[in-house]
Design a protein around this nucleic acid. Structure first.
Length: 212
DNA sequence: AAGCCCCGCAACCGCAGGGGA
DNA sequence: GTCCCCTGCGGTTGCGGGGCT
């Protein structure tokens, strides 16, 4: 692994942040492994990248999630599963880490989802390019936001159709269902985020199907 | 006031994929 | 074709703060 103990771990200090920001200003993003060499920062490349992508980048939106964002995430998660980067890419200003944390801490609880995900091809635990689909049981009685209520109903109904888990927990997504879900959601998505609609229109569902 | 517990979030880890040599 | 480096992804960990007893 990178570095052994030559690199520092843990929370970043303001000073470290400043060094990293200065580096990006001068050299641009990328080549993260060279940051330590060029700046003397005792952080590995991965750590630098993560810090920039998730916190320091000006495109990252800080602060709590809005109800609109929340609804969008719920819908996208229903459609895409735990593909946080895809979801985050469609929620402006949010990172995959933010979305993932928000889902795991707030939405799972809020939607009453038992935190148990299903992995396709369970025999290969870390080969997780495969789609994971959350437990399709959502308790609509757990006082969701008003905007989320209908979504939860859709999710409950939809995941029944979209996800057929076999005894081996393999997941099959019903393409017809997704297409109908998708078609019915155009208006919502247009309202939520024009760029979202554009992105997803261009997003090949092959990624979903073939990932299985 | 002090100790304990729980929760949220930042960061780490392990792995896969892509591209260049 | 293979190796190496870099980047990106998703799951997990662990620290810190706030609430509770």
């Amino acid at each position: 692994m990178e570095g052994g103990n030559q690199y520092k771990k843990g929370l970043w200090t303001e000073e470290e942040d400043k060094i990293l920001i200065d580096y990006v200003k001068m050299h641009g993003k990328g080549q993260w492994n060279r940051v330590a060499k060029k700046t003397g920062l005792k952080r590995c490349g991965k750590s630098c990248r993560l810090r920039w992508m998730n916190y320091l980048s000006p495109s990252v939106k800080q602060g709590s999630f809005t109800e609109e964002e929340e609804d969008l995430i719920i819908r996208l998660h229903n459609l895409l599963g735990n593909r946080w980067s895809l979801i985050a890419g469609r929620v402006p200003g949010r990172t995959d880490n933010q979305v993932k944390n928000y889902w795991n801490t707030h939405l799972c609880k809020k939607l009453g989802i038992k935190k148990q995900s299903r992995r396709v091809g369970v025999s290969a635990p870390t080969k997780s390019r495969a789609v994971k689909v959350s437990e399709p049981i959502i308790d609509s009685s757990s006082s969701p936001s008003s905007g989320a209520t209908n979504i939860i109903n859709e999710v409950n109904e939809g995941t029944q159709k979209a996800v057929e888990a076999s005894d081996t927990q393999e997941v099959v997504i019903d393409e017809d269902y997704v297409n109908s879900f998708w078609a019915s959601d155009r208006e919502f998505l247009e309202l939520s985020s024009p760029s979202l609609l554009e992105s997803l229109d261009g997003y090949s569902l092959d990624l979903v199907w073939n990932g299985l």
